[in-house]
Amino acid sequence: MDESEGRPVDRRGFIKDAAVGAAAFAAPGKLMADQTESHDHSHGHDHDHDHDHQDVPPDIALRVRALESVLVEKGMVTSAALDVIVDTYENRIGPRNGAEVVAKAWVDPAYRERLLADGTAAIGELGHLGGQGEHMKVVENTPEVHNLVVCTLCSCYPWPTLGLPPAWYKSSAYRARAVIEPRTVLSEFGLDVPEDVEVRVWDSTAEIRYLVLPERPAGTEDMSQEELAGIVSRDSMIGVARVEAPAGGPSGGDQ
């Protein structure tokens, strides 16, 4: 049955072997990662620790690996460059950037005014512009208006301030429902918007990306900008959550 027996292992053989390996190790854990690497003799991807195979059709992981392999060998990409991109979005760019913008707007009224008048320039002051965040509009929640951001056609999202979008933001359910029944969607997130508050849904159909400036919660008057940034959630900047004051006050919930 093993057609490659007695022959040099070519890439087709590698893919076939690896597929057998992935299918044989349905359980997660180090054994699988080790086994996968032992099949990886001709590639040297020493960073390949795919611990979640049990949830993935093994086929897609292998096809992606084959594509990376061939593009590297053709000189079109380097694995090191891919590592940098992955690391950037896993570890460096995320909702902490947006939280910094929100916290500054809460403590600095002049900044808040600039932010609402020209989101791009004001976010640029903090250095959080870039791909999928070149043109920013900030919309402010008030006692009269609640804002919610969606991209019905795709998955447009302000990467430099919020990172890559969560799966629910990209889901069919959210894309389909946020525009026709935003209040129902919000209630499923645990946020009931009173009838006398206007809901505004922003569908990101062009090149402008949206960030919600949530309301500053009562009881946070003594908190510093840094402490405030720590309570601003990603979801509050998409508009599916409010920001809550910490239960025990700014220094934590110990008392």
Partner: peptide, 16 residues
């Protein structure tokens, strides 16, 4: 951010 390693590779490859 990525649920599986291959998702991150797809994202990075697409950009690269």
């Amino acid at each position: 951010v990525f649920h599986h390693r291959w998702e991150g590779r797809v994202y990075a490859l697409t950009r690269a």
